[in-house]
């Protein structure tokens, strides 16, 4: 079976590094992008199963990346990662838009993240 592909788009080097360290040892192909533009390029090229998107990034918002992603790779699942919490208004909106899940930084449990990604991958 083909290894599932996950892409993480985040401007923090430490974060993408951490995701790569974890998921690459657990049977995933991990792609990283520090900028939205690079991320969209990889989405187009690699069509990853799950994309972890940092919600607030300079130059382009996670919001906009997701919208683009829906156009160019609708089968991909997006998981929004953000340090912000604005009383769940954004969360609802994103989930309505079709985002698969919403995670808050700092990630308190890698296991939970892993479980969510696993489900996202197996769900078709």
């Amino acid at each position: 079976m083909k290894r599932p592909k996950i892409l993480t788009i985040d401007d923090e080097m430490g974060f993408v590094d951490m995701i790569k360290n974890y998921f690459s040892l657990r049977g995933y192909d991990v792609f990283t992008a520090l900028r939205g533009a690079a991320g969209l390029y990889i989405i187009e090229q690699e069509k990853p199963d799950v994309v972890l998107i940092d919600f607030k990034m300079p130059e382009i918002d996670g919001d906009q990346i997701f919208r683009q992603m829906k156009k160019i790779h609708p089968e991909g699942k997006a998981i929004m990662i953000t340090a912000f919490r604005d009383e769940g208004g954004t969360e609802k909106r994103l989930l309505n838009m079709g985002v698969y899940a919403y995670f808050e930084k700092p990630i308190t449990s890698m296991k939970d993240l892993e479980a969510t990604i696993k489900n996202a991958v197996t769900q078709k």
Partner: peptide
């Protein structure tokens, strides 16, 4: 938050 999250995550 980010730095702490990363330290923790690592």
């Amino acid at each position: 938050c980010n730095p702490l999250g990363i330290a923790r995550g690592q």
